[in-house]
């Protein structure tokens, strides 16, 4: 691991300012993804800004009947919160479908949103990857691409976003609060946080240099059923091949795109009276696969129809 210097941030604005002044710096929260990548030499920061002890670990009621989840809340804390379990079960179920208990006890809400893809080639420094080395090429095209994206990918990158939590946040219309290097705060809609790869797959979010996520805000939950279902290679502790979140009339997909994928075409179809299968078909009509992940299109279609049907029952 490359040597690094370390500081413990005094407050969120100071952390953002310090990060903006040093392009070689990374925020360190739970560390479950960053330290793994540092051991592999994929992340090589020269400086770590430890934000884990910032006073951002509260879960608070908001004036409009929603919840504000501090960025340093752990995945376990959020999943176990009685308000989340009662009013946002899709979020609790999504969190509990991810990682292991030990990892959820450490991984944070803010860190979950900026975790990196698990694409095999992103994780293999001996192979070209446009995320690690822009312009180098994408090894997953024509390579082992069983886990690759089927929606929104480009000729430069077919990686998928591994987050379960963010899929639930999509159907909850969550927003992300941040503080920037100049101390200014702003709110970003969850759908505007993650970017599709296009020709800049190394730029993964709309966060500016140094900008620190301070909270995730959940508006009051939509009327109607909520559900989260994840298909994967083993019953627990495995990344998703596809996942579906449902809340009221909203649907989102996980592990199928570099963005947690809000299924707006399916939602529009459902609102117009389509069956669950027709809604899934509407969303997945543009889906494209790369060989190893051909099965994902049908898997996602069926999973989606099944979850929507469950919501109608």
């Amino acid at each position: 691991m490359r040597p690094f210097t370390y500081e413990r941030a005094a407050d969120p604005a100071a952390a953002a300012k310090a990060a903006a002044q040093n392009p070689d710096a990374r925020f360190l929260a739970g560390g479950t993804n960053l330290l793994d990548l540092m051991k592999l030499g994929i992340e090589r920061p020269g400086h770590l800004i430890d934000v884990a002890r910032l006073p951002l670990a509260a879960i608070e009621d908001t004036a409009d009947g929603g919840l504000r989840l501090g960025a340093m809340t752990t995945n376990s804390t959020v999943a176990g919160d009685p308000r989340v379990r009662a009013r946002y079960p899709v979020l609790a179920h999504a969190l509990l479908a991810g990682a292991s208990p030990q990892l959820r006890n450490k991984a944070t809400t803010g860190g979950n949103l900026v975790q990196r893809t698990r694409c095999l080639y992103f994780y293999d420094p001996s192979k070209p990857c446009n995320k690690r080395d822009p312009g180098a090429g994408c090894s997953a095209l024509g390579g082992l691409n069983r886990g690759s994206a089927i929606l929104g990918q480009s000729e430069h990158c077919v990686a998928a976003n591994p987050s379960d939590m963010a899929v639930a946040l999509q159907v909850l219309d969550a927003s992300v609060e941040t503080v920037g290097a100049d101390g200014a705060t702003r709110s970003i809609a969850i759908d505007d946080l993650h970017r599709l790869p296009g020709d800049t797959p190394h730029i993964e979010t709309s966060l500016k240099p140094g900008e620190l996520i301070t909270a995730v805000v959940l508006p009051p939950p939509p009327e109607g059923p909520q559900a989260y279902r994840k298909a994967r290679d083993r019953a627990s502790y495995a990344g998703g091949l596809a996942s579906v979140a449902l809340a009221g009339g909203r649907v989102a997909l996980g592990a199928v795109s570099l963005k947690p994928w809000r299924a707006r075409k399916a939602e529009a179809a459902l609102a117009a009276g389509a069956t669950p299968a027709e809604a899934a078909e509407a969303e997945l009509a543009p889906a494209r696969s790369q060989g190893g992940n051909d099965f994902k299109i049908n898997l996602t279609r069926r999973l989606m129809a099944a979850v929507i049907q469950t919501g109608k029952a």
């Binding site: 370390y6 360190l28 560390g31 479950t32 330290l35 793994d36 051991k39 430890d50 884990a52 376990s76 292991s100 208990p101 030990q102 990892l103 006890n105 450490k106």
Partner: peptide, 26 residues
């Protein structure tokens, strides 16, 4: 040593974590 096996599980402030994916300084 990558958080996948759990052999390094310890309790920190009473909570179980993977000791391999945490820096001592944290």
């Amino acid at each position: 040593d990558h958080g996948q096996c759990g052999a390094c599980t310890v309790l920190v402030n009473g909570v179980r974590i993977n000791a391999c994916l945490s820096l001592a300084v944290m």
